[in-house]
């Protein structure tokens, strides 16, 4: 099991790096999908099959399709010049320092606390459901309201007045 964990983790790290460095938008998204799939494998190994399945269905299967959809619609291809223009050292130096600080803390924590066990108890879909609707009910409700707000906002933005394309009907309306 440990070998599979390290292989999946390695794939996740490498594909995430490639997703950032790739200049082609669609190729970068494909690497991101690969990274999400390998994270789902890690979830499965750690004993959370339900989360693993949801990771594939929701993230890799639905959200990333929407990303690709938008990239296809906007016809974003190789846009090196724009990126070079945007990515001045002033833009990335401060975030990199902050990220480096986090990395140092992370390595320190990993060094201090030894995690021996990589396999935990298997949490089935039923336990997840019971916990979601008892202990974490408030979180579920709040995220539901957030999604509802998103739907209403999307509806408001996408709503259009009905266009009548026939000049005869159009003239009647004017009179």
């Amino acid at each position: 099991m440990n070998t599979i964990f390290y292989i999946a983790g390695g794939v996740a790290i490498i594909s995430s790096l490639l997703a950032i460095t790739n200049r082609n938008a669609i190729h970068a998204l494909l690497y991101l999908i690969l990274s999400l799939l390998s994270i789902s494998v890690i979830f499965y190994i750690l004993g959370a099959p339900f989360s693993a399945a949801l990771e594939v269905i929701v993230y890799a299967g639905a959200i990333m399709v929407l990303f690709i959809f938008v990239v296809m619609m906007l016809n974003i291809g190789l846009e090196e010049e724009q990126e070079n223009k945007w990515l001045t050292p002033r833009m990335w130096i401060v975030p990199s320092i902050l990220a480096l600080a986090l990395l140092i803390i992370f390595i320190y924590v990993l060094k201090e606390f030894q995690f021996e066990k990589t396999t935990a108890d298997i949490i089935g879909p039923k336990q997840v459901g019971i916990k979601m609707f008892t202990k974490y009910l408030l979180a579920v409700e709040i995220s539901a309201i957030l999604l509802l707000a998103g739907i209403i906002g999307g509806y408001h933005l996408g709503k259009q007045k009905k266009k009548v394309l026939h000049r005869f009907i159009d003239n009647i309306r004017k009179i």
């Binding site: 669609i26 099959p49 594939v56 299967g61 690709i68 296809m72 879909p125």
Partner: peptide, 25 residues
């Protein structure tokens, strides 16, 4: 015989979308 069998099907069918989307692109 998996205890997430049906979710496995749904996940795979949602990944199947990529073949058509990427093939066309």
């Amino acid at each position: 015989d998996s205890n997430i069998g049906l979710l496995f099907f749904l996940g795979n069918s949602s990944l199947g979308v990529y073949s058509i989307v990427l093939g066309g692109w």
